[in-house]
Structures are given as structure tokens and as C-alpha cells.
Write a protein that binds this DNA or RNA. Structure first.
Lengths: 201, 201
DNA sequence: GCCAATCTTGAGCAATCGCTCAACAAAACG
DNA sequence: CGTTTTGTTGAGCGATTGCTCAAGATTGGC
């Protein structure tokens, strides 16, 4: 008996994510959202609650997709170290594809949000922790596969990996040649693979 | 014959910088600025022109101070590689001191600003280029002092250094232990110093 | 066809935004 | 003292902000 819903919720969320990722939280107005979602304010609020809540859902969707993409690349590489290096090299192509922003949306949010958006800010931090944790686990796998020297600390390596990704993506956000981004990614990936020690026999 | 100015322009700019650095461009309102500067809108506009122009001046002041600080640390170390490593280690203490934000204001601006603030955005990019160039020059000095292997590329190393700094500062912006930031900075500094080759004789 | 349930609309609210400008205040000059 | 020059004020402008809600539209069940 209910009226059929005119818009697909997932699709609307995807469009909102695109806009928030591109412009950031503060620079995205409800008028912008109305245009992109082709919805009137009442519908948006009935569906998502508030601008803040919609942003938080977009953040979560972003992180989920990012983790899926990371997992996909990891699955392609039996060696954990090679997988992490491949992830960095893939980011080297950031300027070759059409994306809302070259920068990581979690990092953008971390830097932009303040006390007034504290819930969304905490969410961004939590999602960054999850991403970092995934890196740590891959380094632990590398250690267990004896790809790493005995002294290597997966926790520190995971942190470092996350920092490299953030630095790389911030660099790609600048108006630089694609080749420079590829070169930077290559340097970072090489550093990861240089950790590899010959497997003891 | 003019009326004596009530506020020191430099001091006002410093306060504005503090606020912009902390909250970002969009989240900083003129009301906020009025409060921090203890000036009424008319005075602010007579002195700085517009919110956008004031932000640009703050950006330039930020970059100038950052470069001075970098220069100071470089001057303390005769070896270019040691100087760059020391700079990273100093950033490792970011969570121990009171600053408006742990993140780099240029990076925050790069990620936050859009087409509507294109002039300020370009300015941030230009200032990032200057910072990167300074890193490149230090790596060139390292090469000339034969601290680097023959194949090392100062341009790529400078880019990498800048990316490391951005990644480190983004990490420090998170709600993490100071010890973790120190450890990350240490790892990055060690990587710089690992570039050093024994001086040929 | 009518009702009940749900989705959608859009005018418009209160608050805030960046900003202007006529009036005033304070100093240096004669 | 009066004039000139310039810094400062603050009421308030037009635009935009995030958001509400009564009214209308669209469906399935009876």
C-alpha cells in the first residue's frame, strides 16, 4: 500500500558520496545535494535525516569500497609485500582516472572537520584505524611468511604504509604531471619491496 | 595627522592565521575573526579587504614561517641528509606542543579549497612547490657532498620527502599517542639517513 | 471507487553568511 | 581652537544556510 519509492537509496548515497568527496563537507550545500540527487529537501531529510547523517553514511560507504579495493589487490598477490607494493603502484595512476578527488576522503575529513562535526570526525578516525589495521595485518602475514627481517615491527610498518598513502594522495591532489605521481608511487613501492629478505632455507 | 592605529597589523594577521590554521577556511566565520581580532567588520575589511584576501595573507605568512623554521634546522646541520632527518624528527614532537593544528596548513588548504577559492588554492600550491623545491636543493647539496649514491635523483627524493612530511603530519592530526608519532618520524628519518653512502676517498 | 499508507513537494522559516557605509572618534597640523 | 585625515564602529543589507511541515501525489487492499 505504500507509494513506490522514486529514488534508489543506494544510488542517491553514491551520488552524495561523489559530491562530498569532491567538495568536502562544508563546501557542499543542501542546494548542491538537491541538484545532484534530484530530490527536494523534504525527501532528503526523510531519507537520510540530516546533512551530517548523510555525510556519515557517505564516509562509511567510501571506507567500505576502499577496503574492498584493497582486498581485491591483496588477493591478486600471494606475497603480502608484493600486494602492498602493487597497491601503491595502483595509486600512482590516480591522475589518469576520473575520480571526485585524488585525495583520500577520510584524510580530507580528518583535516576539515572540527568540534561541531565531532561524530563524523570520530567516524573518519575510526575508519582510518581500520585501514591502518589492514596494513598491519598484511605486514604480519609478511613476517609469518618470512618476507621480513626478524626485527621488523608490523605495527610501525603499517603506520608508515598509511602515512605513505596519505602523502602520495595529497601529492596527487596537486596540479602535477601524472608521471611525477607514478614516479613517487614507484619509489614508495620499491621501498616496501626492499624490505624483503631472502627466505631462509 | 592620521588617527593612531589601534591594532598592530602583523599581530592581527598572526591571530587570523592561528584561527584559519585551526578551523580551515570555510569553518572560520567573520564572527569568529571579529572575536579573535577584537575588531569590527568595518575595520577588518579596511585592513585586509576580504575574508579571502585575509586568508591568502595568512597562508603566505604560514609558509614564510615554515620555511624559516626549515632553514633554521638546516643551518644547525652541516650534513644535508642529517638536516632533513632532523627536520622529520622534530615533526615527531608535533603532539607534544600546542599548535593550532598538527596538519600542514598548506595541505589542509589544498584539500579543502575548490574552484570558488581558486586564487587561494593556487597560492597554496605555489607555496607547496617552494617547500618541495627547498627539499630538492638539500638533496642536491647532499649529492654534491657525495652523501648520495650516483644514481640518486634529488627531484624524486625531494618529492618523496614532501610526501613523507604530509603523511606524518596527517597522522599526527589523528588522536594517537605521541609515542606513535615519534616512532613514525624516527622510521622516516632513518630512511633518509640510510641513503647515505660512505664518502669515497 | 475509496481508504490507508507512504513518498514527494516546495514555500518558506530562523539563523547565519560575507560584507557595506554613513556616522563617529582620535590624532597631527595650523 | 578648528580643520583635516584616517581608523573605528555597528546597524543592517541581500544572499544563503540547514531544515520543517502542511499539502499533494502515488500506490495496494478492500
Amino acid at each position: 500500500m505504500p507509494r513506490a519509492t522514486l529514488h534508489n537509496r543506494q544510488d542517491s548515497l553514491e551520488r552524495a558520496l561523489h559530491l562530498f568527496w569532491q567538495k568536502g563537507f562544508h563546501a557542499t550545500s543542501l542546494k548542491d545535494l538537491e541538484r545532484v540527487l534530484d530530490m527536494r529537501p523534504g525527501s532528503i531529510y526523510a531519507t537520510f535525516g540530516s546533512k551530517d547523517a548523510l555525510f556519515q553514511e557517505a564516509l562509511e560507504r567510501y571506507a567500505r569500497l576502499a577496503l574492498v579495493e584493497l582486498e581485491r589487490i591483496m588477493a591478486e598477490h600471494p606475497s603480502p609485500l608484493s600486494g602492498l607494493a602493487a597497491y601503491l603502484r595502483k595509486l600512482g595512476g590516480l591522475r589518469d582516472s576520473e575520480v571526485p578527488s585524488r585525495a583520500c576522503m577520510l584524510m580530507k575529513s580528518l583535516l576539515e572537520l572540527g568540534e561541531r562535526e565531532q561524530v563524523a570526525l570520530s567516524k573518519a578516525e575510526t575508519l582510518l584505524v581500520a585501514m591502518e589495521q589492514r596494513f598491519v595485518e598484511r605486514f604480519e602475514a609478511a613476517r609469518d611468511a618470512q618476507e621480513l627481517p626478524a626485527g621488523a615491527d608490523p605495527v610501525r610498518l603499517g603506520r608508515r604504509m598509511q602515512a605513505e598513502v596519505m602523502g602520495l594522495r595529497a601529492f596527487a591532489q596537486r596540479d602535477v604531471d601524472s608521471a611525477a605521481v607514478h614516479a613517487l608511487a614507484e619509489d614508495m613501492a620499491d621501498a616496501i619491496e626492499a624490505l624483503r629478505q631472502d627466505r631462509p632455507h
